[in-house]
Design a protein around this nucleic acid. Structure first.
Length: 698
DNA sequence: GAGCACTGC
């Protein structure tokens, strides 16, 4: 191993943050059990005391700061903060302490842990809210966990979040769209509610930029004379990770194929290193399946070396039962090797991992506002991501991380932080959310990271064409407000509202629910023929949307049977979610005063409703095209019907699609045949080039 | 006849 590997000089867990402005407290995991603790090393370096965690948090919340940035690296300590705050009386008088997480699963598990530590029943003093699940007791719940998306939704009814005395945002370094919107809004709320305390928990590496974002210099100067005013300089608290040390190894020379390098490294670890499971980070399903096969083949070739390996793939497309194999205890005498996408970086935690192999790449979404196309490309990860991956090796005991790139590459080429999701996504959903919260000057909104202006303008343009915004870029009434309230992509929401006019809401909310899923089919490699046959049983001449209606009917007629799903290559969990979303939409429509109506067999009605939402995604089959090439009406972009569509090789003259998948070609997914006259009917303004100058009002 | 990193309301 020494031939290829060079030990790294970087520590995976960065410890302290330099701060020339003062006001920074450091907390050491080794601080004594009560009162103030001091860490000699840190004190010498920083000339600052080190407080005990609890004392530091309370000192800051009570006396000093309106905003506290907790810089930590997987310490797991943030579950204690809400408990400290409750003890200190921040949840008294009907006030609630809110704690957000970016993921539903994290909300459930963290709230359960806190309830257990406090010895209370979940849903009483400690509760949680995620979509479709409200486990809180109004008047009783003092600490409430929720996804940041749910908190944003709550702001539509209560823009200043008046119920909450403290809001803690966890995992802020992940920089998801909803976290970034939330942070921007919280900064605004703080000006109106100086008593609101914010605690932002972030990986150490991002703490400095978070602090800069919340440091409102203008306001601070104005308040300088007033000693009693809350301090607007955010305090940074650095918490040392509780994880074990992870030794980092780099390649001495760059490799030409990370796939082959990963396979070689796994075999080498198995050969030379003591017991402990291996976690390998690759980019996607193709790579992962190939790596699993290569390792297994090698195991057969060299029985003495590679036997005893249990190689398992892990990605979100796998069925639930296949994913669960990862968590089964490793049989005696075996070494588990999990080959995974980024899902193991944040969403799933594996116990027993001692070795991590990091390819240095992941699939990332990029959005081109000019063509309005989102692309999924393999791209280098950030230093922050590399550290997070390495940290996965140190959960049970000291571990090792093998990076399939050189140290020089890590130091000089890798960017420190990932590009925030905001800057590489389509923003229609975010723009309408801000509009509905009364943020009129979207381009001037104070984001933690500003999105490209082109993406903003594109989003405003789309919303205008949908009739959601008027010419002054204000939400239209009632359409704009209703679209904002429906928790789906605005084009889908517009389709639902139009279904009221075309009297087919019953059908459309089912289609809307299915379109909100990744896919309702199970991935069926190796049984392609059977899979295609199963699909044909539901296929409709109109296209994929009506096909989904047939699947849903079948599912309901089967009594929502998982067996039926299995037989028909349908994802049971996805169908259950479709049922939930359909239910949520039906309640929403009732609130809008719309009743559910069925168009029965008249599919023309529902196709017109679909066009009313998706007219911008219309395409025409190229005349004389031998290979089924279409061109989009908007940008004359060459596109093709995806082979998974029921309209593949049928090639109707005019179609609309729900989304594009871009690989070597642009493929349309979820395709429906239309009559071009419907386009003019749905969006005369869009197709007759009478649009006003959209950039003017912004 | 080809392919879907990962969340969320």
């Amino acid at each position: 191993m020494s031939k290829f590997w060079k030990p790294g000089t970087e520590r995976p867990r960065s410890s302290l943050i330099d701060d020339e402005e003062g006001g920074v407290l450091f907390v050491s995991a080794s601080a004594s059990s009560s009162g103030f603790g001091y860490s000699t090393l840190e004190r010498q370096r920083q000339r600052l005391p080190v407080f005990k965690y609890r004392t530091a948090i309370l000192y800051l919340v009570e006396n000093h700061a309106t905003t506290i940035i907790v810089g930590e690296t997987g310490s797991g300590k943030t579950t204690q903060i809400p408990q400290f705050l409750k003890e200190a009386g921040w949840a008294e008088g009907g006030r609630i302490i809110a704690c957000t997480q970016p993921r539903r699963l994290a909300v459930q598990s963290v709230s359960a842990r806190v309830a257990e530590e406090m010895g209370v029943k979940l849903g009483e003093e400690v509760g949680y809210t995620i979509r479709f699940e409200d486990v809180t007791n109004p008047g009783v719940t003092m600490i409430k966990f929720l996804t940041d998306g749910v908190l944003l939704r709550e702001m539509m009814d209560d823009p200043l979040l008046t119920k909450y005395s403290v809001i803690m945002v966890d995992e802020a370094h992940e920089r998801s769209i909803s976290t970034d919107i939330l942070l921007g809004l919280l900064k605004k709320i703080q000006r109106r509610r100086p008593e609101l305390r914010l605690i932002i928990s972030s990986a150490t590496i991002e703490a400095r930029s978070m602090s800069n974002f919340f440091h409102d210099r203008k306001r601070n100067q104005g308040d300088a004379a007033n000693d009693s005013a809350p301090n607007t300089v955010p305090a940074i608290l650095s918490v040392e990770g509780k994880g074990f040390t992870v030794e980092i190894y780099y390649l001495e020379e760059p490799c030409s194929s990370y796939l082959q390098a990963a396979v070689d490294t796994v075999l080498s670890i198995h050969d030379k290193e003591p017991v402990g499971d291996i976690l390998v980070f690759l980019t996607g399903q193709d790579d992962i399946d190939a790596a699993v096969q290569l390792i297994n083949e090698n195991a057969q070739d060299h029985r003495s070396h590679s036997s005893g390996l249990l190689v398992l793939p892990l990605y979100s497309g796998l069925s639930r039962s296949d994913q669960d194999l990862i968590f089964a205890p490793t049989p005696k005498g075996k070494r588990k090797v999990v080959i995974s996408t980024n899902i193991a970086e944040t969403s799933l935690t594996l116990d027993g991992v001692v070795y991590v192999v990091d390819s240095g790449f992941s699939k990332q979404r990029f959005y081109n506002p000019i063509t309005d196309i989102e692309n999924l490309v393999v791209a280098p990860i950030s230093k922050a991501s590399a550290r997070q991956r390495a940290g996965r090796a140190g959960r049970v005991r000291p571990g090792k991380c093998f990076r399939l790139y050189t140290e020089e590459y890590f130091m000089k080429e890798m960017s420190a932080e990932a590009i925030p999701e905001m800057q590489r996504s389509n923003l229609v959903g975010s723009v309408i959310q801000l509009k509905s919260l009364g943020i009129d000057n979207i381009l001037g909104f104070d984001w933690p990271a500003s999105p490209p202006p082109e993406s903003m303008v594109r989003a405003l343009e789309v919303l205008y064409s949908l009739g959601v915004l008027d010419e002054d870029a204000k939400l239209t009434s009632p359409t704009g407000f209703q679209v904002a309230e429906i928790p789906l992509d605005p084009m889908i929401s517009k389709m639902i509202l139009s279904a009221n006019t075309y009297e087919c809401t019953e059908e459309i909310i089912i289609i809307a629910a299915v379109l909100s899923m990744q896919s309702i089919w199970v991935s069926a490699r190796g049984v392609q023929k059977e899979f295609d046959e199963a699909k044909l049983r539901f296929a409709a001449a109109e296209g994929d949307h009506v096909t989904y209606l047939n699947v849903y009917k079948g599912f309901i007629q089967s009594g929502k049977s998982s067996q039926w799903c299995y037989k028909n290559y349908i994802n049971y969990h996805a169908m259950k979610k479709v049922v939930d979303i359909r239910e949520q939409l039906s309640k929403l429509l009732k609130r809008f005063g719309m009743s559910l109506k069925s168009c029965e067999r008249d599919t023309q009605k529902l196709r017109k409703a679909i066009v009313a939402g998706f007219f911008a995604n219309s395409c025409h089959l190229e005349a004389y095209s031998q290979n089924g090439m279409y061109k989009t009406i908007r940008h004359s972009q060459e596109v093709f019907i995806h082979p998974s569509s029921v309209l593949f090789r049928v090639n109707p003259k005019w179609v609309i699609y729900h989304s594009l998948v871009s690989t070597d070609k642009h493929y349309m997914r979820n395709v429906m045949a239309i009559d071009p006259d419907w386009l003019i009917e749905a969006a005369p303004h869009f197709y007759q080039h009478k649009r006003p100058n959209l950039s003017a009002p912004f």
